[in-house]
Nucleic acid binder design. Structure first.
Lengths: 119, 119
DNA sequence: CAGTATCCAAAAAGATACTG
DNA sequence: CAGTATCTTTTTGGATACTG
């Protein structure tokens, strides 16, 4: 069976988007080092709203990248962690993020050149 | 200098989003194997509109990931290619995409389980 | 061919209030 | 704590028409 993210309509495209999207990438990245609870995640992923975090976690859980472990205690405690597949994905995502971060000086220079040429 | 994509306001976040975003990831992926002209790209990146492709290319060019080579001929010919930094980025992105595509059967199964539990 | 400009529809995101 | 529900605003996206 063939999956090609370049073809619109291919189910791999939404999944890739969940992983690489704004909040997805940060959520997966945050879970790389271990399980986190909902509000811990919220603090880690700077700027995310409750709504977006919940939505993001649902999508990732549905894709089988994130595992949700809810203890039926009071107050409730819910731990989110990466599945094995989630971990593999996270490692490749981290490689990408690390590259971008390490090359930001270069990117910033390019942006300045671009802007000054068009100003 | 420190760049942390997890911090809102960090300039690395927009750049990561350009690369990982819906059209950015597909555009970079398409350019991995060599230069392409505007309309070649349009055909390759299935589903992209002129507007979105132009916007995406501007962002990637500004970030220094894509090089734009415009011949002043008539009709005009414009070739887009990856810069060295763009290439490094593309390789890491490809590693991620390949993983997701190869594991789609697993993802699809997880989705079915998730959906049938909540239906 | 390689775009830009404009307008409109749709979707995503954010703020807020509320619940088990 | 861990969310859901709802509403509003903002952003994004697509269609179309036009230009060098």
């Amino acid at each position: 069976m063939e999956f090609n993210v370049f073809a619109s309509g291919c189910p791999s495209r939404p999944t890739l988007e969940h992983v690489t999207g704004r909040w997805g990438s940060l959520t997966v990245g945050a879970l790389r080092e271990g399980p986190l609870r909902f509000n811990e995640l919220r603090r880690r992923v700077d700027g995310v709203s409750e709504k977006m975090l919940a939505q993001t976690l649902h999508a990732l859980e549905r894709d089988g990248l994130v595992h949700r472990d809810a203890q039926p205690t009071n107050p409730p405690r819910v731990d989110y962690s990466l599945t094995p597949l989630g971990h593999e994905t996270a490692e490749r995502l981290k490689a990408l993020i690390d590259l971008v971060e390490s090359r930001m000086p270069e990117v910033l220079e390019a942006q300045e050149r671009y802007d000054s040429r068009l100003a």
